[in-house]
Write a protein that binds this DNA or RNA. Structure first.
Length: 302
DNA sequence: TAAGATAAGAGGGACAT
DNA sequence: ATGTCAGTCTTATCTTA
């Protein structure tokens, strides 16, 4: 019931792209018209296998696929609160006692633990972040995975859930080399940048995350998509970056600032009218930073 | 108006105490 | 653990072409 048009998820009923995922029930819901989409949540592939071609069409699923973004990974068993057996008859008293015990332990294991409550809250927040930032499901899974690891190591205790979650998401984005700046995440998560970066550093050293260094070349695509820049200009900018990298001029510098400056030089050389202001706006660094990089880069790029 | 210059302040890494 | 230092980036303001 969801059609994919130029990568967007559109509601089949009302045609708006207002599909959000409700992590509490594990369903995708249209915020506009309330339509519940169940297909999407089961789309990670069947976990059953068939050995005859005839049964392909009518195989019943045994529940949704597992996902790290569900607090219980989508695997849950519900014990009915009614003391009847499957045929509707009342239970014998010894059976009733057994079931009472099961219910007690079931509730303890499902949500009474504080780590689990924590995870529930974090994952529902992750769902909101995903919609705000337009992040691919794979990265969201990765973020959930990182958060789980942090939780198991006890890194969350005493710290803000939102900040740690935002840091996990930032880490996941970097790991997937889909650049989202700290500022992007700051806006979406409503957490101070300082707090997120502190948590990120903590995650980085405690979980031994191996993060690829942000490649300024990746940033070029992101900046130039907001401006109207030709392929040739982009290629020139990448060339400028690479020669700067060879001279060890790029270490310790903000990759966004470098990318913006390389584009700036490239635009001037290709006679494209673009101001430092434009580049600063679309890259998220200030004009001053661009000027400072410019000082270093232009000597070699005459 | 765009670009350059300067100054003050924040945050974090390296290193010594 | 705490302080200092060099270096980066940001914000703000002023000057220049």
């Amino acid at each position: 019931m969801v059609v994919q048009e130029n990568g967007k998820t559109v509601c089949f009923r009302c045609g708006k792209d207002s599909i959000v995922s409700d992590e509490d029930v594990g369903e995708l819901v249209c915020q506009n018209c309330g339509y519940v989409v169940s297909e999407k949540i089961q789309s990670s592939g069947p976990e059953w296998r068939t050995f005859s071609t005839e049964s392909d069409k009518n195989s019943a699923r045994t529940g949704g696929p597992t996902s790290l973004t569900r607090h219980d990974k989508g695997l849950s068993t519900v014990i009915s609160p009614i003391n009847r057996d499957s045929t509707g008859r009342p239970l014998t008293s010894s059976m009733k006692h057994t079931i009472e015990r099961l219910r007690t332990w079931d509730s303890r294991s499902q949500s009474a633990q504080s780590t689990d409550r924590n995870l529930r809250q974090a994952l529902s927040e992750l769902g909101r972040l995903k919609d705000k930032l337009a992040i691919s499901p794979g990265v969201i899974e990765k973020a959930a995975y990182i958060y789980r690891k942090a939780l198991n190591k006890g890194l969350i205790r005493g710290r803000s859930i939102s900040a740690m979650l935002a840091a996990s998401l930032y880490a996941a984005c970097r790991d997937a080399e889909t650049p989202r700046t700290l500022v992007d995440i700051t806006y979406a998560a409503n957490v101070k940048r300082k707090d997120i970066s502190k948590c990120y550093r903590l995650l980085h050293q405690e979980l031994d995350l191996k993060m690829p260094v942000v490649d300024p070349v990746q940033c070029i695509a992101r900046i130039s998509s907001k401006l109207d820049i030709s392929e040739k200009t982009k290629r020139d900018a990448i060339r400028i970056l690479n020669s700067a990298k060879k001279r060890n001029e790029s270490s310790g510098k903000d990759p966004m600032g470098l990318a913006a400056t390389a584009l700036y030089i490239s635009c001037i050389r290709n006679k494209i009218p673009v101001t430092q202001r434009d580049l600063a706006d679309s890259s998220g660094v200030t004009e001053v930073t661009i000027r400072n990089r410019y000082k270093g880069l232009r000597i070699h790029e005459k």
